[in-house]
């Protein structure tokens, strides 16, 4: 089983859309995939799928529920299956004690995630983890247990600066045992459209960072992250976008 973690310096880079679309493509290819929503600050799997019962990753981390309780199978068609683990913002808001525990510097949660990984490694071909953007203890946990880290970045100035910082401080420490792939999502931020120069300048900088510090750099065309669609499941998917994701999958499978 390959464990892939999708990370970003800041939110709104299309991280979850990427992850679920990659999961969708892999599932369509009849691969056994488990997608984990570990973005405890802004969980969003529920925007794509409908939950049937209130069992979340936080329950497993806090040893309140077993692994079997929190995995939800999602049948796409006759042959394709995608298993999901959810997190819930509402649940964490209501249970502030649990939220506080989960945000602490505590190695217990790394051990729980490792335990999760060990328990599912024979059942799945891929485990995809959606993380909290930035430097947080739980995002570091997910990066630690991953074989591949996909860093999603948009060509905004803050993203460029942030990724430089992440590279200098966090990624260099993980590089020895983890494959690092920079995915440049060429999204144009609202209001930035007019400033093409800055966009291009940042794109060049991102490419430079990618070439210098990452094993691979992949560019994907602009797409609307707010659409919250899984293209692989649709009848008329955005082919250009899907093809760019297939390139990433090839790298993942190879790596």
């Amino acid at each position: 089983m390959k464990t892939v973690c999708v990370h970003s310096y800041k939110g709104g880079t299309g991280k979850t859309t990427f992850l679920l679309n990659i999961a969708g493509i892999l599932a369509k290819q009849e691969k056994k995939v488990l997608a984990v929503d570990y973005d405890l600050r802004a969980p969003s799997f529920q925007s794509y799928f409908k939950m049937t019962k209130q069992s979340f990753l936080s329950h497993f981390l806090l040893e309140e529920k077993t692994l079997g309780d929190i995995i939800f199978p999602c049948k796409i068609d006759e042959k394709a299956n995608l298993d999901l683990i959810f997190s819930s913002m509402e649940f964490l808001k209501q249970h502030s004690k649990q939220r506080d525990k989960l945000s602490r510097d505590d190695a217990k949660y790394l051990a729980r995630m490792y335990n999760l990984q060990k328990n599912v490694e024979k059942k799945y071909d891929f485990m995809l983890i959606d993380t909290i953007p930035g430097f947080f203890y739980r995002s570091i946990d997910s990066m630690m247990i991953s074989d591949i880290i996909l860093l999603i970045a948009t060509p905004s100035t803050s993203n460029v600066l942030g990724i430089e910082e992440l590279c200098g401080n966090i990624y260099t420490m993980l590089q020895e045992e983890t494959k690092m792939i920079l995915v440049i999502n060429k999204i144009e931020e609202e209001g930035v459209e007019a400033d093409k120069e800055i966009f291009e300048e940042n794109l060049v900088k991102l490419r430079q960072i990618g070439n210098n510090k990452f094993s691979e750099v992949v560019e994907v065309p602009y797409f609307n992250i707010l659409s919250e669609r899984i293209h692989a499941f649709e009848d008329q998917p955005q082919e250009e976008f899907l093809n760019s994701l297939k390139d990433i999958i090839k790298i993942i499978e190879k790596g």
């Binding site: 190695a107 430097f135 630690m144 966090i170």
Partner: peptide, 27 residues
């Protein structure tokens, strides 16, 4: 960043312990 680096270092050790069948070192 400093905290994250320290946690990462500690996590690397902890993961190695987990892989060798030992428990994590908790603060």
């Amino acid at each position: 960043i400093k905290k994250a680096r320290e946690y990462l270092k500690e996590s690397q050790k902890n993961l190695a312990r987990l892989k060798s069948g030992k428990g994590v070192k908790r603060k």
